[in-house]
Nucleic acid binder design. Structure first.
Lengths: 191, 191
DNA sequence: AATTAAAGTAACACAAGTGTCACTTTAGAA
DNA sequence: TTCTAAAGTGACACTTGTGTTACTTTAATT
C-alpha cells in the first residue's frame, strides 16, 4: 500500500548515536539528523513528535540490546567468569555508559510517549541492576569481594572504567587487561 | 573614570561553570549567562567576542587555579603521600575533569584570542602532565607501581574515578577511602 | 560643574532550529 | 487501471540565539 522507506529505523538510531556522541544532547537537532540521513526534516516528524521522544526511543533500543547481551551473565556460574564476561561486554558496548550519562540530560516532558519511554527505561535500568546485583551478591557469597567496599562503587568503577580516554592508543587487549588488573588487585605491588 | 561593574570576572566564571555543568557545552549561551548575572547580553560582549573566547578563558582560569594547587604535590616526598594528596586534590576539584572533557568540545575557531587561549591551555596541560609524570616516575622508582600497567592508564583511572556517580549518597570520606582502596589494592580479597 | 571613558542597555538584522500542513510521490490492493 | 494510504517534501510562522551599534548611565578627573 505504501511507498518504500528511504531510511530504516536502525539507520536512524545509528545516525542518532553518531550525532549524540559528536554534538552532545544539547547539540542534537532534527536538522542535523535529516541531513545525515539525506531526507527532509519533516519526514522524521512522521515517526517522532520531537527530540525527546526520538532520543528516549533510541535509548530504549540501545538499552534493550545491551540487556539482551547482559542476560548471558547468568550462564556463567563463578564470580570470576562473570567478571570477565561483564568487563568484555561493557568494552564491546562502550557507548552505553555515555548514553546513560546523556540520558540524564533529557528534560521532563509533558508528552505522554516520552513519559512512558522514561518509565520503561527506568524499568530496564532496574532490570540491569538486578543482574548486576546478582553478580555482586555472588562475589560476596564466594568471599571474593572486600566487604568494606559499597556495591554501588564496585558497579560504578567498572562502568566508569571504560570511559578512560586511551590517548596514547594502547592496544585494546592490553588496555582491558590492565584495567582488569587494577580493578581486581590494584595498581600497587602487593609486597 | 568609569562606572562601577555590575558583575566581577569571578562571578562570571562561576556562572559559566554552573551553566556548563547543567547544559553542557552545546547548551551554553550568552543569553543564559546574561540572565544568570542579571545583566544585558550586550554587556558580555564588552569583555568577550563570543562563546569560544569566553569558555576558553574560563578554562584557563580554572586550569591555573588547579595547577597552583597541584604544584604542592612537589612538597610531598614519598609516593604514598603524593598519592593521598593527589586523590584529595582531585576530589576537591571534582569539576576539573568534567571541564577538561567539555574543553574537548570547543571547535577550532579563527579568532586569534581563542587560538592563543587554546595554545596556552595546551601548555598548562603539559605542565600538569609534568607534575603527574613526576609522581608516576617516583612510584616506579620506589617499585610501588606494577610495571605492566601503562602510565596513561594510571593517571586516567585516577582522574576518571572522581566522576563515578555516588547515587546512594555514601559519605564522601567513605567513598574516597574505598576508591583509594580499589585503586591501590583492588576490589578482590588478596588470599 | 563640565568632561571623559568605561559600563551597560536595547533594538536591529541575521541565522538556525521548531512544529505544522498542504502538497506530491509511489507501491500495492481493489 | 484506478485508488489508497503511507512516505516524503517544502514552505510558513514562530522561537531562540548571535553579533553589532547607537544610545544612556555613572564615577572619577580636570
Amino acid at each position: 500500500m505504501a511507498r518504500e522507506r528511504k531510511f530504516s529505523t536502525d539507520e536512524l538510531y545509528h545516525a542518532t548515536e553518531r550525532i549524540l556522541l559528536k554534538h552532545g544532547y544539547e547539540g542534537f537537532s532534527f536538522s542535523l539528523l535529516a541531513e545525515q540521513l539525506d531526507i527532509s526534516r519533516g519526514a522524521i516528524y512522521k515517526y517522532f513528535d520531537n527530540r525527546e521522544e526520538l532520543i528516549t526511543n533510541y535509548m530504549l533500543y540501545e538499552m534493550k540490546l545491551f540487556l539482551e547481551e547482559l542476560k548471558i551473565i547468568e550462564e556463567y556460574h563463578s564470580f570470576d567468569e562473570k567478571f570477565t564476561f561483564l568487563l568484555e561486554l561493557i568494552f564491546k558496548n562502550s557507548t552505553v555508559p555515555q548514553m546513560i550519562e546523556i540520558g540524564r540530560r533529557v528534560p521532563i516532558n509533558e508528552n505522554n510517549k516520552v513519559k512512558e519511554n522514561i518509565g520503561q527505561l527506568e524499568n530496564l535500568h532496574l532490570d540491569m541492576y538486578k543482574h548486576l546485583q546478582g553478580f555482586i551478591d555472588l562475589g560476596r557469597q564466594e568471599q571474593k569481594l572486600k566487604a568494606s567496599i559499597p556495591d554501588s562503587l564496585i558497579l560504578g568503577i567498572i562502568f566508569q572504567s571504560i570511559m578512560i580516554p586511551n590517548h596514547f592508543g594502547i592496544s585494546p587487549s592490553e588496555w582491558v587487561q590492565s584495567i582488569k588488573e587494577i580493578l581486581c588487585h590494584g595498581m600497587l605491588k602487593n609486597d
